[in-house]
Design a binder for these strands. Structure first.
Lengths: 193, 193
DNA sequence: TTAAATGTGTGACATATGTCACGTTTTTTT
DNA sequence: AAAAAAACGTGACATATGTCACACATTTAA
């Protein structure tokens, strides 16, 4: 249950077995069925979520009812609304399980305790967030400069596994195009083989 | 010259005067004329840049020659291509001074030394980057869900000072619309007064 | 003070993408 | 196995925004 967590942490910082045993005590393991929500609009985001198994999606719904996907989080990744988590303001996001999933929940008090007792986690989270920022900046620039087809092809190159595991209309909402446009792009690229 | 730096640091972490004197020695002060570049496409981003005075812009140029503005950095803000800074890969960004500016440069070795000697800076940078991530995520969702007019009006609400200090076509490239569209939005909202 | 460079406004037109509607296929649930 | 729900494909059409072109205004530099 803590396999990916341990592995991912060790990729960026050095922690010993004792420390990891302590880390373990801070997380709440949870199993989720498909389509279950971990966070809904209006909630306060009480946990940062680490995915050990399965796949989560973070998204918002605008006034017209259209969904916009911020992130897919698969094994070894995190999910949360950081703004709501730190300010304790209500969130605008939903986080749902797209597959049967196993997650580890880290509450705010546990987060604080973690940084206090194992200061090197400050570095771990900084790097994690930094990589997320770099990726999000790229998506933003891409959303300005790329055509719908380029957006899809780039996603295929960069995250083929996401495209395989997720329904098309959610892929569309992740790259910021309509599901119909994505459907047409896919049928066109088939005829170009 | 270090006024904003000191102030901004104290907003998030506690550091004493001795530590600040040490911090000072790590930064390279630099004055910049208008339109001077601190970073050009293909360079390796050698410094993270803190703005004491003036205004910087980070942007990319796509294959068609269209500019896309990632960020404006005014007094008290940072600028850099974090990806290039940490990987030492060539950058795709340009960073230019939009006004006569005074900046403080922090090289990679100095950055490393800073975190080693004053570990609380890990926290400072984590929070800095985290706030940037939250803002960038909002821009991304906005780029999916808002009309050109909404994008402009929201920017007016959130960063009126940027809109005042920066040429319109750069504002357009920041919210991801053409300069002509922005020009029409502005003339329309005038007639609605 | 003049010339050059930069920035802005606006008309005419093109087009990529969204929207709506409906049918079919696939998956999930009972 | 049947029914319900979710997902996908596709035609017809609408439209917001981009593109191109050129005039005018403003700022900067010579």
């Amino acid at each position: 249950m803590y396999k990916f967590l341990f592995q991912k942490i060790k990729e960026t910082i050095a922690i010993n077995d004792d420390e990891f045993e302590f880390v373990k005590t801070l997380f709440i393991p949870k199993k989720l069925k498909r389509r279950r929500y971990l966070l809904s609009e209006g909630d306060i985001c009480k946990y940062t979520i680490f995915v050990e198994k399965g796949l989560l999606r973070s998204f918002t719904t605008d006034e017209k009812g259209t969904e916009h996907t911020l992130q897919f989080s698969m094994e070894g990744w995190w999910a949360a609304d950081l703004y709501s988590f730190f300010t304790e303001e209500p969130t605008q996001f939903h986080i749902e399980a797209l597959e049967e999933s196993e997650v580890l929940l880290l509450s705010k008090p546990s987060w604080d305790l973690l940084l206090e007792k194992v200061p090197s986690f400050e570095r771990y989270f900084r790097i994690l967030i930094q990589n997320n920022l770099i990726a999000t900046q790229r998506r933003l620039i891409g959303s300005f400069s790329e055509t719908a087809e380029e957006k899809y092809n780039n996603l295929l190159l960069q995250c083929p596994s996401i495209v395989q595991r997720v329904p098309q209309h959610m892929i569309a909402s992740y790259i910021g195009i309509s599901r119909e446009t994505l459907s047409r792009i896919r049928s066109n690229s088939l005829s170009n083989l």
